[in-house]
């Protein structure tokens, strides 16, 4: 199967974007992240629902208000609350942090959408095929075990004649469920191990079924991404794109080096979107 971008490229793309957003918390970067995230949202066919917007605003507001209540750094004190200074800078930091959180969450959802289990397997690739196998089994067993836990809970409830009331009862029930789950999963594991043995596990050195043949474009894209990423990081390390909040709010965005950093991050976010072929492939995958 020929794919346009190797899974590892996708992986590092996400890692880079999220890492930059979380470490360099600059409002302009957050805006860029938000904008490209929303574009991805569109590409993936998800709709921006009212519920999402409200939830995002709630996170923003809650953090903005909560931060000054716990942190009194900042030079402009608005008032004192129970002896603790409520500063405007702490408010600003809360807002900033809320924005970082919201955008990071957005990107995490995009990550989970784009990185299918196949992609995760290919991230491990031939080199880490054993890890890949473990990952695959995790993907297989996690929903299975969750379903089984649900079944156990129903079974216990049916036995007891009702769901547990009160925390003591709930605790006892959960303990029982856990024990049941443990034994069950051990037994399950034995049989699965037998099945694996039956199908030749351990007979020879495992090979790796590679389904992805990525085009050479992938290498170019990866190089571009790395270049953009290192630009942003270098600029940040050297002091550009600084958004100081404490003790005075000073957001640097006028200097040339800042603008360069912003442009590099913009590029980083949008590189995989550049090729319409990539987008087409994604759309096809999801229809």
């Amino acid at each position: 199967m020929r794919v346009y971008l190797h899974s590892r490229t996708w992986f590092i793309y996400f890692i880079m974007v999220i890492a930059i957003l979380m470490s360099i918390r600059h409002p302009v970067l957050i805006l860029i992240g938000l904008e490209s995230g929303l574009i991805w949202w569109k590409i993936l066919g998800r709709k921006l629902r009212a519920g999402h917007v409200f939830a995002a605003l709630f996170i923003l507001g809650a953090l903005a208000v909560a931060n000054p209540l716990t942190s009194s750094n900042g030079a402009t004190i608005l008032f004192y609350l129970n002896g603790r200074a409520f500063t405007a800078e702490a408010l600003a930091y809360g807002l900033l942090f809320g924005a970082v959180l919201v955008v990071t969450l957005l990107w995490c959802v995009i990550l989970s959408e784009l990185m299918t289990t196949d992609r995760w397997l290919n991230v491990c690739g031939r080199r880490f095929r054993k890890t890949g196998l473990v990952l695959t089994m995790v993907f297989r067993f996690f929903p299975l075990f969750t379903k089984q836990w649900q079944r156990i809970r129903e079974g216990q409830e049916a036995l007891e004649g009702g769901s547990p009331v009160g925390w003591k009862e709930t605790f006892r029930m959960t303990k029982r469920e856990l024990l049941c789950m443990l034994t069950w999963s051990l037994e399950h594991g034995f049989v699965t191990a037998d099945a694996m043995l039956a199908r030749g596990y351990g007979a020879a050195k495992r090979s790796f079924f590679n389904r992805e043949n990525y085009r050479s474009a992938s290498v170019g894209v990866a190089i571009l991404l790395l270049a953009a990423f290192s630009t942003v990081i270098t600029i940040a390390v050297r002091g550009g794109m600084e958004a100081e909040i404490y003790p005075y709010v000073k957001i640097h965005m006028d200097a040339a080096i800042d603008i360069l950093g912003f442009a590099a991050f913009f590029l980083l976010c949008h590189i995989p979107m550049i090729s319409y072929k990539v987008l087409r492939e994604e759309r096809r995958m999801r229809s």
Binding site: R129, T136, M137, S207, R211
Partner: peptide, 23 residues
């Protein structure tokens, strides 16, 4: 209890992978 992987294709390929058959 016998299905090991999460995808049908992977399940099919699992046995062959164990035998070290090339991709």
């Amino acid at each position: 209890q016998q299905v090991v992987t999460d995808r049908v294709w992977h399940e099919l390929a699992f046995g062959l992978e164990n035998l070290g058959v090339p991709s």
